[in-house]
Design a binder for these strands. Structure first.
Length: 208
DNA sequence: TGCCAGGCCCTCTTTAGGGCCTT
């Protein structure tokens, strides 16, 4: 199994929207998928060092009481840096999670060598008939079994992984592609939306 | 103390504005 076949899908719950404004991660959830199956997972709460707002308590179900006893950000981030190692990664609206990942890893002097791509950008290009591109909507749109427990990190990472696998499977069938490597999604995400179907048809050698 | 994001994408665009998506 080469690393190219292994991808980590991750999600963070945070104290707010911007690490530049002092927001921190409070929960990490991640799964590793190989050949379309989840083979490993990572979940941890982490104590951001200050109280979280009632909005975040309500939004995530993570309470100040739960975080009081949680491990420190630095301890959890060390373990997560080991988990992601040199893997390629996916997140839903990855620019959001990447800012937090980079910020927290910088705090502990760690880094990563894999690349990160975005399931939100990919789904806008590959599922043009979806009603919208919220994670929960894509789960329903792709008929993925779910309990509705969104906004916890591991659950959202699992759902993102299942959206990722189902979306790629749908596109593979539609365009008669043998496989869709991570690098092709990176290329698709840099391609203007209106040019994506031509790109895929050319790769699948079929006429539109 | 109180302030509070940022990148993508569309369009009535590019000398801009606003909705979407993430917490």
């Amino acid at each position: 199994m080469s690393m190219a076949d292994s991808i980590i899908i991750f999600d963070f719950e945070t104290t707010g929207l911007s690490p530049d404004m002092g927001d921190r991660i409070i929960e990490i959830g991640a799964v590793r998928i190989e050949k379309g199956h989840i083979v490993d997972q990572f979940q941890a709460l982490m104590n951001p060092g200050s109280r979280i707002s009632s909005f975040i308590e309500d939004y995530t179900g993570i309470t100040n009481a739960m975080l009081r006893d949680a491990d420190s950000c630095s301890n959890v981030m060390y373990r997560f840096a080991d988990f992601i190692s040199n893997s390629n990664m996916v997140a839903h609206n990855a620019s959001f999670d990447k800012r937090f990942l980079d910020s927290e890893l910088q705090n502990i002097g760690r880094s990563y060598s894999g690349e990160i791509t975005c399931s939100l950008l990919a789904s806008r290009r590959l599922l043009p008939s979806a009603p919208d591109y919220k994670l929960g909507t894509l789960v329903k749109f792709l008929c993925i079994e779910n309990s509705g427990s969104f906004h916890r990190a591991l659950y959202d990472a699992e759902m993102t992984a299942k959206v990722w696998v189902a979306m790629l499977s749908t596109v593979r069938e539609h365009y008669s592609l043998a496989n869709i490597p991570f690098s092709l999604i990176q290329k698709i995400n840099k391609t203007p939306k209106k040019s994506v179907s031509k790109l895929l048809a050319r790769m699948g050698n079929i006429s539109l």
